[in-house]
Design a binder for these strands. Structure first.
Lengths: 212, 212
DNA sequence: CTCCTACTGCACCGGGAGTGCAGTTTTGCC
DNA sequence: GGCAAAACTGCACTCCCGGTGCAGTAGGAG
């Protein structure tokens, strides 16, 4: 499995992804992708029937990577602490640190890009995009339900909304970081989210004074 | 000042804005804009030197409208309650209701769209976009500093980050709402933000039990 | 030796960005 | 009413991009 192919297809996806995140899908031309890849136009169309199929492949690959990353982060967090609340807080911390360590900041989220270009794609791609957000929701909801079953929340909150808040924080954080060119915003926002989760669920006796 | 001109320029901007929010800037063609406006191509170029100038005008108009809206919401909130914390909480509630009342959900934020297409624009437009976020930050930071000077926060938070969290919630909420086609997410997320601000600043004695 | 994968090269179409220029209608103002 | 400026129209043309069609080929696997 290890780097058997620096395959052309993967290189095309890499180049396309960078372009899409920097300029938007509609503004990323096949011409420039093949120019950078050093391939002919027909070479491109050998791999992807049309631009929509490029979009599909791009999004699918992106979602698989993200899912693996989230699996990794939160299972590592769970190994560090068996309690659902504390492992969740650790997971958010890890995520925040991971985002802070990206050298040029987060390059952008394809789900957001595609959401802001929905009219360009066919049903398949839009459905894929929609499902991605619903999968994130389900993932975080499951963790929050486990937490809430042990720690009663301090305020009336809908756990489903709260689950969305994680995705929300990431998506918003990426936009703001990119917009003003301050990569650290994303990780700061994740820490604020963590602070909220803590205030919501952590029992008062565990928070004597303002201890971190 | 009242509707003296349903001027062509404004109509072009309206049509362009809808297109840009639905498909992205690069994918919104001048041809389709003039087709919908019923104007010739040269008519378009009479108003805007090129596509970049269209972007500039689009963004400037959008930012002016948003600023006026925020001024309105938070000054109305201030009239309803003199206390900075409570008027801020009311403002977030008003904003949330306003977003919930949009018939087809929020159409999208141009700042986010432009952020995800940065390479398409010249320095001017990128600077305009960047400044917009910094202006939002300054606006909310001022309000939060006033709050924090009266109510000591319950957790160590950087007020600047917290100020960004308002923009963050809106940007993220718009992405999620659009992505899964559930307009209410944006207003829900604003209410969660409100819950966080309340937990952070509201004195314990004001929150006996879990009262709203 | 042959089949398959992964391409190259060329020619072509339609549509979009943008330019240039000449001409026309509409509007505001004296 | 007259006149100039503003707000356009129409046409012709350039270059770039998405996409198609078709013919051909280099290299590895059986």
């Amino acid at each position: 499995m290890a780097q058997t192919k620096p395959s052309t297809r993967e290189r095309l996806l890499d180049i396309a992804e960078a372009g899409v995140l920097a300029k938007g899908f509609g503004a990323t031309s096949i011409e420039e992708i093949i120019a950078e890849a050093g391939i002919s136009k027909n070479g491109f169309f050998y791999h992807f029937r049309d631009k929509n199929e490029l979009a599909r492949a791009l999004l699918q690959r992106y979602l698989d990577t993200e899912e693996a990353l989230l699996d990794d982060v939160f299972s590592r967090a769970r190994e560090l602490h068996g309690d659902p609340l504390h492992s969740f807080l650790i997971g958010l911390k890890l995520l925040s640190e991971m985002m802070a360590d990206l050298p040029n900041g987060h390059p952008g989220c394809l789900v957001a890009t595609f959401t802001y270009s929905e009219r360009m794609f066919d049903r398949d791609v839009r459905e894929l995009n929609r499902n991605a957000v619903l999968i994130w929701r389900a993932r975080f909801l499951k963790m929050l339900e486990e937490i809430a079953s042990i720690y009663p929340p301090r305020d009336h909150v809908d756990l489903r909304s709260l689950a969305d808040m994680i995705s929300n924080t990431v998506e918003g954080g990426i936009v703001l970081s990119k917009a003003i060119g301050q990569p650290q915003i994303l990780s700061e926002q994740l820490l604020l989210l963590r602070s909220y989760v803590r205030l919501l669920f952590e029992p008062a006796e565990a928070r004597t004074a303002l201890a971190s």
